[in-house]
Lab assay of single mutants.
Amino acid sequence: NQASVVANQLIPISTALTLVMMRSEVVTPVGIPAEDIPRLVSMTVNRAVPLGTTLMPDMVKGYA
Rank of each mutant, 00 (worst) to 15 (best):
A48W: 09
N46E: 08
I13G: 15
T28D: 15
L17G: 00
M43Y: 14
P38D: 08
M22D: 00
T28H: 09
V20I: 13
D58I: 09
T15Y: 08
P57E: 07
V60Q: 00
V5W: 03
M59N: 06
E35I: 11
T44S: 12
L51T: 14
R47G: 05
E35M: 11
T18P: 00
A48D: 15
L10C: 14
D36R: 08
T53K: 08
A3L: 10
S14F: 12
A3C: 09
M22S: 01
V26R: 05
R47W: 08
A34C: 07
A48N: 15
S42K: 12
V60S: 01
A34N: 06
P38C: 15
T18G: 04
P50N: 11
T18D: 05
N1T: 15
A7I: 04
I13Y: 12
R23M: 05
A48Y: 15
E35S: 10
R47N: 07
P50F: 08
M22G: 00
T15F: 06
R39M: 11
D36F: 11
T53F: 13
A7R: 01
T18N: 05
N8M: 06
L19E: 06
T54V: 13
G31R: 02
V41T: 05
S4D: 00
V6W: 03
P33E: 04
V41P: 00
S4M: 02
V45A: 05
V49P: 02
I11A: 02
I11C: 03
S14P: 02
S42M: 14
K61F: 11
M21N: 09
T15A: 13
V60W: 01
V6T: 06
A16K: 13
Y63V: 04
L17H: 00
V27E: 01
V6K: 02
A16S: 11
V20A: 14
E25P: 00
V30D: 10
V26D: 15
L51A: 15
V20W: 14
R39A: 08
P29K: 05
V49H: 01
V6S: 01
P57H: 07
L40I: 10
S14Q: 14
I11S: 02
S42F: 08
M22N: 00
A16I: 10
Y63R: 03
M21R: 00
M59H: 09
M22E: 00
L17V: 03
V49G: 01
V26W: 09
I11K: 01
T18R: 09
V26M: 11
I11D: 01
P12F: 05
S42D: 11
G62L: 06
S42C: 15
V60C: 02
P38G: 11
R23F: 04
N1Q: 15
D58C: 13
M43N: 04
V5H: 01
I32W: 02
V60G: 02
L17S: 00
S42L: 08
D36C: 15
I37N: 00
P29R: 04
Q2G: 15
V41F: 05
P50S: 08
G31E: 02
M21P: 00
D36Q: 12
G31Q: 03
M56P: 01
M43H: 07
A3T: 13
V41D: 02
P33M: 07
P57G: 07
R23A: 06
A3K: 08
A48F: 11
M22L: 11
D58E: 12
R47C: 06
A7Y: 03
E35L: 12
T44F: 13
K61P: 14
M59A: 11
V20T: 15
V41M: 06
G52L: 04
M22K: 00
V30F: 14
L19R: 12
E35C: 09
N46G: 07
R39P: 00
Y63P: 04
Q2F: 12
L55E: 00
L55K: 01
A34I: 07
A64M: 14
T44C: 09
V27K: 10
V6R: 03
A3H: 12
N46C: 09
I13M: 14
G52I: 03
N8T: 12
M43S: 06
I32V: 06
G31F: 03
A34G: 09
V45N: 01
M43G: 02
P33A: 14
V5P: 03
R39G: 08
P12L: 07
P12V: 04
R39I: 09
V6L: 08
L10Q: 14
L19F: 15
T54L: 04
L51F: 13
T54Q: 03
S42Q: 09
V60H: 02
G31N: 01
V30P: 11
S24D: 07
V30R: 06
S4K: 01
P29N: 04
D58R: 07
T44R: 14
S24K: 09
P38F: 09
A48K: 10
P57S: 09
R39T: 11
T44N: 08
V27F: 03
A3Q: 09
V5R: 03
P12G: 06
E25Y: 09
V45K: 00
T54W: 03
L40G: 00
S14K: 11
N8S: 14
S4W: 03
L51S: 15
L51E: 15
A64P: 11
G31T: 00
G62K: 06
T28E: 15
P33D: 05
A64W: 05
V20D: 11
L19T: 07
T54K: 04
I11W: 02
G62C: 11
Q9C: 08
Y63G: 04
T15W: 08
P38S: 12
R39S: 11
N8D: 10
P12W: 04
K61R: 13
M59C: 05
N8Q: 09
N46T: 13
N46V: 11
Y63N: 04
L51R: 09
G31C: 03
P38A: 12
V20K: 14
N46W: 07
P12E: 10
L51K: 14
V27Q: 05
P57W: 09
E25G: 09
M59I: 05
A16T: 09
A48H: 14
V60F: 05
D58H: 09
I13H: 12
V49R: 00
V27L: 06
V20Q: 15
A16W: 07
I37G: 04
M22I: 08
V27D: 01
L17A: 00
V41I: 14
V5C: 06
R23I: 06
M56L: 09
L55D: 01
A34Y: 07
I37Q: 04
A34V: 09
M56A: 06
T28I: 09
M56N: 05
A34R: 05
T18Q: 08
Q9H: 12
V26I: 12
M59P: 01
Q2V: 12
P38L: 10
L51D: 13
Q2A: 13
T54I: 09
T54H: 02
L19S: 08
T54A: 06
S14M: 15
I37Y: 02
G52C: 04
G52R: 04
I32P: 00
T28R: 05
R23P: 01
G31V: 02
V5Y: 03
V41S: 02
L17N: 00
G52D: 14
T53W: 15
G52S: 06
P33T: 08
N46K: 12
A16C: 08
N8H: 06
P38N: 13
N8E: 07
R39D: 05
A34E: 08
T54C: 05
L40S: 00
L55T: 01
R47M: 11
P57R: 09
M56C: 10
R23E: 04
V41W: 02
L40R: 03
E35G: 08
V26N: 07
I13V: 12
T53H: 15
R47T: 10
R39F: 12
V26H: 12
I32N: 00
N8G: 07
D36L: 10
M21W: 03
A3M: 12
R23W: 03
M22V: 06
P33V: 07
I11F: 03
P57I: 06
A48P: 14
V49C: 06
L19C: 07
I11M: 03
V20S: 14
N1W: 11
T15D: 03
G31D: 00
L10I: 12
V6N: 02
R39Y: 10
A34F: 06
Q9S: 08
R47V: 14
R39C: 12
A3I: 07
V5F: 03
D58Y: 13
A48V: 15
N8Y: 03
S14D: 14
P50A: 11
V60D: 00
T18S: 09
G31H: 02
M43T: 04
V60A: 02
M56H: 06
I37A: 07
G52E: 03
N1C: 07
A64C: 15
T28N: 14
T44E: 08
P57Y: 08
N1V: 15
S24C: 08
M43D: 01
L51G: 13
L17F: 03
V45L: 11
E35P: 08
Q2Y: 12
A7S: 10
P50C: 08
R23T: 06
T28K: 07
V6C: 05
A64I: 14
S24M: 10
T54P: 07
Q2W: 12
T28P: 01
L40M: 06
P12I: 04
V20P: 08
N46P: 01
A64Q: 14
M56T: 10
M22R: 00
